[in-house]
Nucleic acid binder design. Structure first.
Lengths: 187, 187
DNA sequence: TGTACATCAGTGAACGCGCGTTCACTGATGTAC
DNA sequence: TGTACATCAGTGAACGCGCGTTCACTGATGTAC
């Protein structure tokens, strides 16, 4: 049952999209190839018609996740609104649909160079986009770039730690709220 | 070849110590039970004489790693010195000997409740210890607690992201250096 | 435009491997007398 | 203090399972004429 070239490309995209979500939600090692294919509606055997390896898909999935994240960023009116979305309870609850940096930072260091490059490129864009929206404010005695890096590191750390804390513990909420207050204050 | 009770306790501690280092370096899923035992000088079969499961060891290892981290913190004369050690190239290079929060945050959310509780307890202590050392400085308009939470989130995020970035890329160094400058500036 | 053949996306069984865990066994230590 | 037996830390083979990857096969699409 051969398929239209257009259809095949569309199917491939579905797998990448599923991977972008599942890898963020459960980690690279936490999702099997057959699950990735099943999530896109296929059986596992066809996987290697599209990708050289699970790792190759991982690199594409990281790219795709950062691209999606960038689109969400563009939708925010300004930096405070972006921060509120980023450090929200909804973001904590849905790692598969939120920032790939917060979800995957810990694991990426152990992945192939392709994955690490894709991750670094996405992160760089994230920092650049925050820097652009940062008010100049020379009073701080810090470059905008330094402030952007600090802001991104703080956001990523807060979200990742909030997810690690048990749902019941007050720490999870506090990490998001205190980090948000402090970040907004710093702008 | 039965062994002294004292010796057995010592052997058990060796396994926990090895796990505390290996889990930080390679993640929970990245280290097999036989490797954990081998790192402590044993064969894998005896594992279940000491631990109910790999997961039970993970919880103890997280505790142990945070305890070790706390000891390192105590050694620092003040907050700036602590920050410089935390955000150093050496820390980036040796995840197994550095902060468990930065190394494991991403994975902990998918672990058992025991592991998550141990993680949250260690993190809480880390925040409390930073708060204690924070200069009062009411001028900030933020509680010390908020500032401590923000500082810890920023440190953890910066270290985790710096490890994810490729060794060759300038991003890795920048994440550590810019975050350090900004954090010191903020004190 | 119509025909004949090659291509290749998707299927499902199979592979080799490493994993967490179990188990029978060993023999020095711990304990009861 | 000395003897006899139970205990149990450590060993290494074995288990069942899920994993990433390979492969022969199918049949509609793509292509050459």
């Amino acid at each position: 049952m051969r398929i239209t070239k257009v259809q095949a490309k569309e199917n491939r995209d579905r797998v990448v999209a599923a991977a972008a979500e599942l890898f963020r939600a459960r980690g690279f090692e936490g999702v099997a190839v057959n699950e990735l294919m099943a999530a896109a509606g296929f059986t596992h055997g066809g996987f290697y018609n599209h990708f050289a390896s699970k790792d190759a898909l991982a690199a594409e999935a990281v790219e795709s996740a950062f691209r999606q994240m960038a689109a969400v960023r563009e939708r925010a009116a300004d930096l405070p609104q972006m921060l509120r979305g980023y450090l929200s309870k909804a973001a904590r609850r849905a790692p598969g649909k939120s920032c790939p940096a917060a979800a995957l930072a810990g694991e990426v260091g152990r992945q192939s160079d392709e994955v690490r490059q894709a991750f670094a490129a996405g992160l760089e864009q994230m920092i650049a986009s925050v820097e652009e929206r940062l008010p100049p404010g020379g009073r701080h005695g810090l470059s905008r770039r330094d402030r952007a890096v600090r802001l991104v590191a703080g956001m990523v750390g807060a979200l990742a730690l909030a997810r690690a804390a048990p749902d019941s513990s007050p720490l999870a909420g506090e990490l998001l709220e205190a980090s948000l207050r402090a970040a907004l204050h710093e702008l």
